[in-house]
Amino acid sequence: MSENRYRVTGMSCGHCVASVTEEVSEVPGVDEVEVGLPDGTVLVRGRDLDDTGIRAAIAEAGYTVAGPVTG
């Protein structure tokens, strides 16, 4: 299993968390989505993760990927 972590801007409430979780969960290969509202991150775990698809799902939910989280 692999994981990708993204910094996402514009999330501010529980509805934001639910929207991002729902959209990203629909991307093939995604097994788990954790949204860190206080730090504006989205952690995605799964097999053969499609970075482009995940970014598109976050955008579909109405938010912007500011970049990957490193470190």
Rank of each mutant, 00 (worst) to 15 (best):
T21H: 12
T52Y: 01
V35S: 04
C16N: 03
M11K: 03
V17R: 09
R7P: 00
Y63V: 12
D39L: 10
V8H: 04
V27W: 03
I58S: 12
A57E: 08
G36I: 08
E23L: 06
E26W: 00
V17T: 13
A66D: 14
T70P: 00
P68N: 13
D48W: 00
S2K: 11
V27K: 02
D51V: 14
R45H: 10
Y6V: 01
C16M: 04
C13E: 07
P38F: 01
R5E: 13
D39N: 13
V8G: 05
L37G: 02
D50T: 05
E22S: 15
G53T: 04
E32D: 14
V35K: 01
T41R: 12
R45E: 15
G46C: 07
E34Y: 01
G29K: 04
S19K: 15
G14K: 00
S12L: 06
Y63F: 15
G67V: 06
V69I: 04
A56V: 08
A57K: 05
T52N: 12
R47I: 11
V24A: 07
V24E: 07
N4S: 11
V20K: 04
E26P: 00
L49K: 06
S19I: 02
L49A: 06
R55W: 00
E60D: 15
V20T: 02
T41A: 04
A56K: 12
T64Y: 00
M1D: 11
G62P: 11
L37V: 02
M11R: 01
S25V: 01
I58K: 05
I54S: 10
A56C: 01
R55K: 14
T21C: 02
G10M: 02
R5S: 13
G10P: 06
V65S: 02
V27C: 09
E34R: 05
C16Q: 03
G53V: 07
T64Q: 13
G14W: 04
E32C: 00
V20N: 05
T70A: 11
G62V: 11
G36K: 08
D31C: 03
E26L: 13
S2H: 04
E32H: 14
T21G: 08
Y6P: 06
V30H: 07
M11N: 09
T52A: 15
D31N: 14
I58F: 09
C13Q: 04
T52S: 15
V33H: 12
E34D: 14
D48A: 13
L37N: 03
D51I: 11
T9S: 15
S12Q: 06
Y63A: 10
E32F: 12
E3Y: 10
V42M: 08
M1K: 10
V42N: 02
R55F: 00
Y63T: 07
G40V: 06
A57G: 08
M1Y: 02
T64D: 14
A57Y: 09
V65F: 02
E3W: 08
V8R: 03
D48Q: 09
D39Y: 10
G53R: 08
E26F: 00
V33F: 12
G10S: 04
T21A: 10
G10T: 09
